[in-house]
């Protein structure tokens, strides 16, 4: 199942040319970035207190956002894949909106929802919940922009689950929850894994919604991308060094999740 069909379905050779162009298009700018780095200065740039606190904050919030995306996104994908109700198509489209929305506008939308004057602001204030300028706001911003990735990944995996398998399980007397737990979830695990990778990566890189919604304070709301943007103002070299740090973190995380699971998840 995870092997590519060999021989018969060989690729036409010309595909290699645009494929190579695509790879170069992505890798060349990153290479150009790496050439700007002064290796001797790297350790001191990366170990500054501001950098470390931004990195730690980014890791914590991105993990939290990914968990939220999983807890909320997988059930939504399940519902959408079963959807027979009217308007489910529209719902599916609307849920993808954060993908098209410029993140800054997403942040403004969140502000209008959870902010002090927002739709839910007063109710939240009554409950004693202050989201503004808190780490929770960062997690919310990241979840908002990342959730669609999780939903898409899991839903397309669900469509790959064969009806016969599920029907057979039902015939064998499996209830809905048991079916979900022992048949569906194991089958969509690769899709779920790539959803996790995508959501985490998107959360890690999140900038626009965070700055518009959460603010920017060291250790509280200033994640690595915000710190990078700020450093660029005075010290572009430090900004590049921090970007490399971000890339490294992303590569490590994606590397940890990807090899066993991802290849056929997003077909």
């Amino acid at each position: 199942m995870s092997r590519r069909p060999a021989g018969g379905a060989a690729l036409p050779r010309w595909v290699l040319i645009p494929a190579a162009a695509a790879a170069v298009f992505i890798l060349l700018p990153i290479l150009a970035l790496l050439t700007r780095i002064e290796l001797a200065e790297l350790p001191s740039l990366l170990s500054s207190e501001a950098a470390l606190s931004a990195l730690w904050l980014s890791l914590r919030t991105a993990v939290a956002a990914t968990l939220l995306c999983t807890v909320l996104g997988v059930p939504l994908a399940l519902v959408l894949s079963h959807a027979t109700f009217r308007g489910s198509g529209i719902l599916r489209t609307l849920i993808l909106l954060p993908l098209v929305l410029p993140p800054v506008i997403g942040g403004i939308a969140l502000l209008n929802t959870f902010g002090r004057q927002g739709l839910l602001g007063e109710s939240l204030e009554l409950l004693g919940v202050q989201i503004a300028f808190s780490t929770a706001a960062v997690v919310l911003a990241q979840t908002f922009v990342s959730l669609p990735f999780m939903v898409i990944a899991v839903e397309s995996a669900l469509r790959g689950v064969q009806k016969e398998v599920m029907e057979a399980a039902v015939v064998d007397g499996a209830g809905p929850t048991q079916l979900l737990r022992s048949i569906v979830l194991p089958l969509i695990l690769p899709g779920l894994a790539s959803g996790v990778v995508l959501a985490f990566a998107r959360s890690l890189g999140e900038f626009g919604a965070t700055i518009a919604f959460a603010g920017s304070l060291q250790g509280v709301t200033r994640t690595l991308p915000l710190e990078i943007y700020l450093q660029r103002e005075t010290d572009p070299d430090a900004a590049v060094a921090l970007s490399v740090l971000l890339i490294l973190v992303a590569v490590v995380v994606i590397g940890l999740t990807r090899p066993r699971t991802a290849p056929d998840a997003l077909r």
Binding site: F133, I211, S216, R222
Partner: peptide, 21 residues
């Protein structure tokens, strides 16, 4: 004692306009 140190004056103004600050 700021609650946020924004990256641009526009962001500061945005937080004030929305009465978040």
């Amino acid at each position: 004692a700021p609650d946020s140190e924004e990256l641009a004056v526009t962001d500061v103004l945005g937080k004030v306009r929305s009465a978040e600050a």
